[in-house]
Simulated scan of single mutants.
Amino acid sequence: MPLTLHVDAAAWRAHLAEVLDANPGLVPVIKGNGYGFGVARLAAEARRLRVPTVAVGVPAEVSLVRQNFDGDIVVLEPWHPALSAPRFDDPRVIRTLAHPEAVAALAGTNHRVLVELRTAMQRHGFLPPLPTGRVRSEGYALHLPLEGDGVAEAERTLRAAGVSEGPVWVSHLLGKRLAELRRRVPGVELRPRVGTALWLGDRSSFRARSTVIDVHELPRGTKVGYRQHRMIKPGYLLVLAGGTAHGIALEAPKPVPSLEARAKVLATGTLGAAGLTLSPFTIDGRQRWFAEPPHMQVSLVLLAQDATPPAIGDEVPVEVRMTTATFDRVELV
């Protein structure tokens, strides 16, 4: 009962090459669920692109990437001696440091590190003055917020820290903004770390499809699902591949900066309180309602009686959040 990601390999790879060519020094980020494609697959793609370095989120992701990629691997999560012993015996791995205790613990060793500077993100990093311990630094790292002027924030952070040369590994800057930062800090070698804009930048090159597992035509009043809710109208109950284990209908909190966005959240919450939740599945040209919350591996979806039901084995479109989705199968065609 597969939930499948269909990928137009030629179009997807053309996009990857375009982003790489437009942003010299690019470091692909491969972390979490591999942006829906899987960590191993993205590591192999990075090897095919012949980039010298990739970045992972946490140390546990290094081993899987290492099996499929031959270059250096940066770990974005800062290391701290309170979290683990400093056993960095892989010469291909570069760890990030963001605390004085970490610098002190690694002073005089041959471990490769990046020193992270604190930006307006306020997540990790040193504030000036910078640490003075002798470490084998591969440069500085900047993690920039998505909102605001990232170029100005990066320039401010570097100048405040007195960094005017050497490698600087920077997130969330590409294209014209990256070129502008290069113009403002000409002595710095910028290494843009890129995840979403690289792997997910061309949405037209991939699509998620759910396999129809079962179709039932039911009269009004029929009880369905775990919670035995009644069908309020006659119609079809569809059993579709994809549930909570795949990330179906799982959402992170969203920013709601405008009145329109708040109105949509309010309307969605009101419908949810009434037991009505729109599913991410599209059948016969329309997005359809859940019969109840998704199960672990399948979802129950309602289809009106006047609609044309799919057949068992058909595939129907499903909208997913790629950074939380796990597919049964990824097909490059």
Rank of each mutant, 00 (worst) to 15 (best):
P2S: 08
V103H: 11
D8G: 03
V51T: 05
G275V: 09
V56F: 05
L16Q: 09
G221Y: 00
V151I: 05
L64C: 14
V7D: 11
T222Y: 09
E260M: 11
V7F: 09
K264D: 12
L3G: 00
R48Q: 05
Q305M: 11
A14N: 13
A102C: 12
V298K: 08
V298R: 15
L76Y: 04
A85S: 07
G38V: 00
R112H: 09
F88Y: 03
G285K: 03
S205F: 03
M121T: 06
P219G: 02
F206T: 08
A161F: 07
G201M: 10
T277V: 11
V194I: 12
E165H: 12
V212R: 07
D149N: 08
L276W: 05
P309W: 03
Y226L: 14
R286E: 14
P128G: 04
P309D: 01
E251G: 04
W169T: 10
T282K: 00
L238P: 09
V318H: 14
L130D: 11
G247P: 10
P59C: 01
A160Y: 06
V151L: 12
V224S: 01
P52G: 07
S137R: 06
T132M: 14
R66K: 15
I94T: 09
G243L: 01
T268E: 12
A267D: 10
A291G: 01
R286K: 01
T4P: 11
R227S: 15
P167K: 00
A55C: 09
V256W: 00
L144S: 12
L300I: 00
P131H: 07
D70Y: 02
V320G: 03
K254F: 00
L332V: 06
H246A: 05
W199D: 11
P253A: 02
L250N: 04
L271H: 04
A311Y: 02
A261F: 02
T324C: 05
V75Y: 10
V170I: 15
R184T: 07
G133R: 02
G133C: 11
G148I: 05
L198R: 08
A82V: 09
L190V: 10
G139Y: 03
R227D: 15
G247I: 09
D21I: 00
R177W: 14
Y140G: 10
W289A: 09
L278F: 00
N23C: 04
E217G: 08
G242Q: 00
E189L: 13
D328E: 11
H295E: 15
R95C: 06
V75Q: 13
I213E: 13
K254A: 13
K223V: 14
A245S: 12
D328V: 03
V170C: 10
T109H: 07
Q122T: 00
G139I: 04
L278S: 02
G175P: 07
S63P: 01
A197M: 12
L271N: 08
A245N: 15
P294L: 09
A160S: 07
L142S: 12
P128V: 10
V65M: 06
G269H: 08
S164D: 15
L49H: 05
P100A: 02
G187S: 07
H295A: 13
A160R: 15
V56C: 04
A17N: 14
G36D: 14
S63Q: 12
E251C: 02
I283M: 02
R66P: 15
D72W: 07
P219F: 03
E180P: 01
G275D: 08
A273Q: 11
R13I: 10
R230S: 10
L303R: 00
S63G: 01
